[in-house]
Computed example of a mutant assay.
Amino acid sequence: MSGPSKRDLRHAARARRARLAVELRGRDGGAGVAEAAEAIAETVLRFVPDGGRVAVYESLPDEPPTGRLVERLLESGHEVIVPVVLDDFSLEWRYAVRGTVGDQGTVTRRQGPPDASERSGWLGVDALAGCDLVVTPGLTVDRHGTRLGQGGGCYDRALAHRDPAAPVVTLLHEGEASELDLPLDEHDQPVDAYVTTTGRLVRLR
């Protein structure tokens, strides 16, 4: 007998995430998000090589916050790139600029690729090939490193361009890791670890 479908798992994971995000925002008189952002940044920074390039997504309101991570990486002299979702669900990459990414930032959605006047600071769809670490979003991750995303396939396609030596880390709310093995399709790209909003690092592969 087969297990639940990806669609069913996403539905349950999104409901769980909404609940956990509300709890985080309400924790400690509203300080929970800032504490989570700092915990994530502290943990991720421990395994970024000096002067490394890191790919980080700009978090949506219910996602583990990444704004502080981006700021800390830039303050430490690292190069940070962030994604823009194109209309075909490919990810284009651009440099993060200090002071412009907040913990409630969003990934910009475009219609078509940037034109010539916008190209400064844009790095192409294969920019992950030059990264030392890739930080991805995800709804859950299982013990084998199988990541369940939002269903668009953006990161699975983007991760095909990465340097195989560069670790891939997914950020999760504490309590979002899957105790069950997730469905794995041929195009799914595994991750090497996850970091939670408490700063906990779990290596998987």
Rank of each mutant, 00 (worst) to 15 (best):
P4S: 11
K6A: 00
D8E: 15
H11P: 03
A13C: 09
R14T: 10
R14Y: 11
R14G: 03
A15W: 02
R16T: 15
R17G: 01
R19M: 12
V22N: 11
V22T: 15
E23L: 15
L24M: 09
R25V: 04
G29Q: 13
G30S: 14
G30T: 10
A31G: 01
A31K: 14
G32F: 13
V33M: 14
E38G: 07
T43C: 09
T43Y: 08
T43G: 02
V44M: 04
V44E: 07
L45P: 01
V48Q: 06
P49G: 09
D50W: 06
G51Y: 01
G51A: 12
G52E: 14
A55P: 11
A55I: 10
Y57A: 02
E58G: 05
L60I: 10
L60M: 13
L60H: 10
L60C: 06
L60Y: 12
P61L: 00
E63G: 06
E63D: 10
G67Q: 04
V70E: 09
V70N: 08
L74I: 14
E75N: 12
S76Q: 15
S76T: 10
G77R: 08
H78K: 07
H78T: 11
H78Q: 00
E79G: 01
V85R: 00
V85L: 10
V85Y: 06
V85P: 03
D88L: 03
D88S: 01
S90H: 05
L91Q: 03
E92D: 14
W93I: 05
V97K: 04
R98Q: 15
D103A: 04
D103K: 01
Q104L: 11
T108I: 14
R109G: 03
R109S: 02
R110P: 06
R110L: 11
P113S: 14
P113D: 15
P113C: 13
D115G: 03
A116V: 15
S117Y: 03
L123K: 05
L123C: 09
G124A: 09
V125M: 13
L128F: 05
L128T: 10
L128S: 12
A129T: 12
A129S: 13
D132W: 07
D132Y: 08
D132E: 14
V134M: 01
V134L: 11
P137S: 09
G138T: 06
L139Q: 10
L139S: 05
T140Y: 05
V141L: 01
D142E: 12
H144F: 04
T146H: 04
R147H: 04
G151Q: 12
C154H: 06
A158Y: 09
A160W: 07
R162F: 09
D163G: 09
D163S: 05
P164Y: 08
P164F: 00
P164W: 04
P164V: 10
A165W: 14
A166K: 05
L172W: 02
G175K: 07
E176M: 14
S178R: 13
S178M: 08
S178A: 15
E179T: 14
L180I: 15
D181Q: 13
D181I: 15
L182S: 05
P183I: 00
H187E: 12
D188G: 01
D188R: 08
P190N: 02
V191Y: 02
V191F: 04
D192C: 03
A193W: 00
A193T: 07
Y194P: 00
R200L: 01
L201C: 06
L204M: 07
L204F: 10
